[in-house]
Simulated assay, not measured.
Amino acid sequence: MALAATATLMAAPAHANPDLAKAKNCMACHAAATRLVGPSFKDIAARYKGQKDAEALLATKVLKGGAGVWAPIPMPANPQVSDAEAKTLVKWILAQK
């Protein structure tokens, strides 16, 4: 029974929260409400609020990196993050208020 429960949890999609952001090293440069090396998650959500393509655009940036949007310091690609995790993280980021 315990093995079945563990297998179910491992097969479930990642639920974005600060723990996933920490696990994928997002928190090394970003924080929920204050700017670190990069913008806060709250500022990212505010900038992209209502933008139809925001999820796809930001998921691509999480995966491949980007530069020049917030400051001259580039955001490196994050090879630790899967496509599904990037989408989950971005949905969580865009929900920040």
Rank of each mutant, 00 (worst) to 15 (best):
W92H: 15
K49A: 15
Q51G: 09
L63P: 02
A45L: 07
A28P: 05
G38A: 11
A77E: 07
V62A: 04
E85A: 00
A86F: 01
Q80H: 06
S82F: 03
K87N: 12
A23Y: 15
P39Q: 14
A77P: 05
L36V: 03
V37T: 08
N78M: 12
K91L: 08
A33D: 15
T34N: 14
L63E: 04
P74T: 04
E85N: 05
A23S: 02
K52P: 05
T88G: 06
A54E: 01
T88Y: 08
N25R: 11
G68Q: 08
A71N: 13
I44G: 09
L57I: 01
Q51A: 10
P79Y: 01
A23I: 09
M27T: 14
A59I: 02
K91A: 12
A32G: 13
P76S: 07
Y48H: 07
V37Y: 14
I93Y: 14
D53M: 09
V62N: 05
A77L: 12
K64Y: 00
V69F: 06
P79G: 06
D53A: 14
A67R: 11
I44M: 10
K61G: 02
I93M: 12
G65L: 14
Y48I: 01
C29N: 14
A31N: 11
A54Q: 03
F41Q: 04
K22D: 12
L94M: 13
T34Y: 05
Q80K: 09
P76F: 00
C29H: 03
M75Y: 07
A84D: 13
K49L: 01
Q96F: 13
E85H: 00
L58N: 04
D53N: 13
W70E: 10
L94Y: 02
A45R: 09
Q80D: 10
I44F: 10
G65C: 10
A31G: 15
A31V: 06
G66L: 00
A33T: 13
L94H: 02
K97G: 06
P76W: 05
A71S: 11
K49F: 00
G50V: 00
K61N: 05
L58H: 12
D43P: 01
A84F: 06
V37G: 08
K87R: 11
P39D: 10
G66D: 03
K64D: 03
A95L: 08
H30R: 14
K64L: 01
A77C: 10
T60P: 02
K91W: 10
P76V: 01
F41D: 14
K49D: 04
W92I: 06
A71F: 08
P74N: 05
L89R: 01
Q80R: 03
T60D: 13
N78E: 07
M75N: 05
K49Q: 06
Q80A: 13
E85S: 07
L36F: 04
S82P: 03
Q80T: 14
P39M: 09
E55V: 09
